[in-house]
């Protein structure tokens, strides 16, 4: 039911971990629902995501989506990243079971939340 690509991300996630002194952190979900995705970002002066990391409590789809998301976002400008949609993550993973689409939605939400936090900090 999971694509090979999704399983690869699940088995060997390259972006798992946290960033000390992150520019922004976004967390969505709760243990009761079954998934928690936390995304850390490091943004440089030009607004480029120099590093993106995740911590996820969740199923295969949630972990794979988190890792793919970080990979897709790293090195891009925040304005560009804000245009990312959950479908992009699903496609990157070579598809997900429809019942698991929400995992990729949560990943996008966490990433956007992290960027929001960074922007608020930057305004101050």
């Amino acid at each position: 039911m999971y694509s090979e690509k999704a399983l690869k991300h699940f088995k060997n996630p390259k972006f798992a971990g946290e960033i000390k002194n992150a520019s922004g952190i976004g967390e969505v979900g709760n243990v009761a629902c079954g998934d928690v995705i936390k995304v850390y970002i490091k943004v440089d002066k030009k607004g480029i995501l120099r590093d993106v990391r995740f911590q996820t409590y969740g199923c295969v789809a949630a972990i794979a989506a988190s890792d793919a998301l970080c990979e897709m976002a790293k090195g891009r400008h925040i304005d560009d990243v804000l245009k990312m949609r959950y479908e992009d993550v699903v496609n990157e993973l070579g598809g997900l079971p429809p019942i698991k689409f929400h995992c990729s939605v949560m990943g996008i939400q966490a990433l956007k939340k992290a960027i929001d936090e960074y922007k608020k900090k930057a305004e101050r």
Binding site: L7, G34, Y57, C59, V60, A62
Partner: peptide, 14 residues
């Protein structure tokens, strides 16, 4: 604690 069941099941499946 701190580990979701489906994810763990798949890790074991691997």
């Amino acid at each position: 604690f701190g580990v979701e069941g489906e994810g763990l099941g798949m890790a074991l499946e691997q």
